[in-house]
Design a protein around this nucleic acid. Structure first.
Lengths: 193, 193
DNA sequence: TGCATTCTAGAGCAAGTGATATAAAATAGC
DNA sequence: GCTATTTTATATCACTTGCTCTAGAATGCA
């Protein structure tokens, strides 16, 4: 009978997320990943096939554990308008207090990895589309509750907010200034009146 | 007397811009850069000191030749409101037709290079601040001409537009869809009424 | 105890990395 | 023709890269 796989896959992926998040995809070597996950290289290759496979698993883990929970608050809120504002302010809070200025792994990867034909691009596109979907649903709920300006289109506004989220994340990496980021949020949510 | 430097520095920098823009900083090797610029490695090192020095020169060249001229149209327009809209629509046009989905070299570098302590971060911060400055000046002119909604603050709106520009550039790399990007522009410029 | 499987440690592979050294060629002024 | 300088071609350096291989250790069941 086989020796059972000993390591905790979730813990390994969390460590890999941190490594890719700190260094970026290209600059994180498989030796860095081995150190971070405390697994020997053959074990990593056995479990994830190659560096790209590990990255895709890590990105899925990141979305499930970091991104989706926050987006879920939009789906379940009694006041979608307040929930959207809270979501954006929380994003600013975390960006301003992130000493390492890591940004968002998904957005970082969208820049680093999408111009090249590779296996990751469809994954990134998928997650960005899901973010847009959450935002649109929240804005549709806001409209239903009369929390949207007359004439504001949830689809269009969702796309604006997605762009603004991306913009805040990127901008915060070089200028993590609360007044700057909060004014962006204020302007972006002006239509939620 | 010395043999005169034979190569055209501007042409070398243009070639280096293309190389970094296509590949990113880390993935562009000095051999790639030598091939792209048609200069031997010792000549590159003699002229630019190291890879980072060449990159900073290339980024300055990119800002001067690609970014600033478009921003200058905001500064000289008779209708700032129309100029801002035209600026953003031009950005969408170029993003949609860019088959290589290269995005913007400055924004790409803001993601790739700013979490690490290096010589490039201040340069990137500087150019992003200049972009914001151009936008703010245009919006102040728009206010003067009555082309801004009452209560709209040029500074805040400039920051929103900067975020939106970043967002559009990043989003377009994975989803270069005209309806998507145009709806973002439409929503972002709703206050220019 | 033996077998099957996984894990670790370490070595190794071919290729690539940023940067430097060397020698020869090219250029221009004296 | 000589000198000084730059450029090119090529090699080289030490190190890193993604990935594989080998051998031994560890595990669990029959």
């Amino acid at each position: 009978m086989a020796r059972p796989r000993e390591f905790d896959t979730a813990a390994v992926l969390d460590a890999a997320v941190d490594c890719f998040w700190n260094l970026g995809y290209a600059s994180a070597s498989v030796r860095d990943l081995s150190d971070a996950t405390q697994l020997a290289l053959p074990s990593l290759y056995n479990a994830f096939e190659d560096k790209s496979g590990l990255f895709r698993a890590a990105l899925a883990r990141y979305f499930d554990r970091n991104t989706r929970p926050r987006l879920e608050t939009l789906a379940t809120a009694r006041s979608p308008r307040k929930a959207i504002r809270a979501f954006l302010m929380d994003l600013v809070d975390r960006a301003v207090s992130d000493r390492r200025r890591r940004g968002c792994l998904l957005i970082n990867s969208a820049v680093e990895l999408t111009s090249r034909d590779n296996e990751v691009t469809p994954t990134i596109r998928h997650y960005l589309a899901r973010m847009e979907g959450y935002l649109r649903s929240a804005l549709e709920a806001a409209r239903t509750k009369g929390e949207l300006s007359r004439g504001a289109d949830p689809q269009d506004l969702a796309r604006l907010l997605l762009s603004v989220i991306i913009g805040i994340r990127v901008l915060a990496r070089s200028r993590p200034e609360r007044p700057l980021l909060e004014s962006v949020v204020r302007e972006a949510t002006a239509r939620l009146d």
